[in-house]
């Protein structure tokens, strides 16, 4: 029993990181139907930003987290503006290939600038372990869970209650109708990239703290897993991305706990294949019928 609980704690912390990343995938997909393959690399940029400001500018945790979110939001907006916007009316495959190109550019650019060595992330918060019965939970795990959940609630509030959030929803369901009521599509898309990238930036700093190590290729695997999480929950659906993230985190931890560590990535891809075969719209997805 206690191992199950322990793995649940571990799985949820890891899952909340995937959830933060999956939200960015799903929001961008929802609004411009692009799988932004460079999204995992934004998370890497966030981790490097955190590394830099903590080491060089002696930022403490919160300023590092928030500035990483701002930095990544800007990076996301710039990438959309330079790389994806010119292709807005091109076939989707063109944007998709461009996204892969942006991903390579960020990975190799960062390797070139900062070398591809693995660095240890500065531990701005001393690790403490809490023992609740037989279950151990660290303050970092708690922090990851709490920060992720707070960010998800904030995101939900922004999307549900603010004007820009409503504009996002309007553009993602019907871009032409959104234009007809005066919504600026470009600005709404920029805002979407800013939100999604900010969450990825936060995830990057949190994972730095959790795993202690960062490198320019660190975004690849989590990026793909978060993408799987978004598909699993139902791509384009915000609650689906959060749910998918937690499920993938739990599956991965369970596979590890059962002693199949070597297969933990493979299992996630198997989940992708399975979901595409069995329920391509995802757990929360449904076929929307048009009314006449």
């Amino acid at each position: 029993m206690h191992t199950v609980l322990q793995q649940l704690v571990n799985g949820l912390s890891l899952g909340s990181i995937y959830a933060l990343l999956a939200l960015g995938y799903t929001m961008v997909y929802g609004i411009i139907k692009l799988i932004n393959f460079a999204h995992g690399d934004i998370y890497m940029l966030g981790a490097f930003w955190g590394y830099y400001v903590i080491n060089q500018w002696h930022f403490s945790f919160w300023p590092a987290l928030i500035s990483a979110m701002v930095f990544c939001a800007l990076a996301g907006v710039i990438i959309e503006y330079l790389a994806y916007r010119p292709l807005r009316n091109s076939p989707r495959i063109a944007a998709l290939i461009t996204a892969i190109g942006v991903s390579f550019l960020l990975e190799n650019g960062m390797s070139y600038l900062f070398s591809s060595n693995v660095r240890s992330f500065p531990q701005v918060i001393a690790v403490k372990q809490y023992h609740l019965g037989s279950v151990t939970i660290s303050n970092i795990q708690l922090l990851i869970l709490v920060v992720s959940i707070v960010l998800m609630i904030l995101l939900q509030l922004i999307i549900k209650e603010t004007k820009m959030g409503k504009a996002m929803r309007a553009v993602s369901v019907d871009a032409d109708a959104a234009q007809l009521i005066g919504i600026n599509i470009d600005r709404t898309i920029s805002f979407t990239f800013a939100l999604g990238s900010a969450l990825a930036g936060a995830a990057g700093v949190l994972i730095g703290l959790y795993y202690n190590s960062i490198d320019p290729l660190m975004g690849m695997t989590p990026g793909i897993k978060a993408f799987v999480a978004a598909v699993l929950g139902g791509i384009g659906l915000i609650p689906g991305a959060a749910l998918g993230g937690f499920v993938i985190g739990l599956i991965e931890t369970a596979v590890q706990a059962l002693g199949f560590s070597a297969f933990k990535d493979a299992v996630v891809y198997a989940v992708l294949i399975l979901i595409l075969l069995v329920r391509p719209a995802g757990i929360l997805g449904k076929n929307v019928k048009e009314k006449v």
């Binding site: 309007a170 369901v173 007809l180 919504i183």
Partner: peptide
Amino acid sequence: PEGRHIFPGLSVLENLQMGAF
């Protein structure tokens, strides 16, 4: 617009709010 193009997933009130964007 032709075919109405209301925003599904938004409530009736939210659709009207969007009109006053």
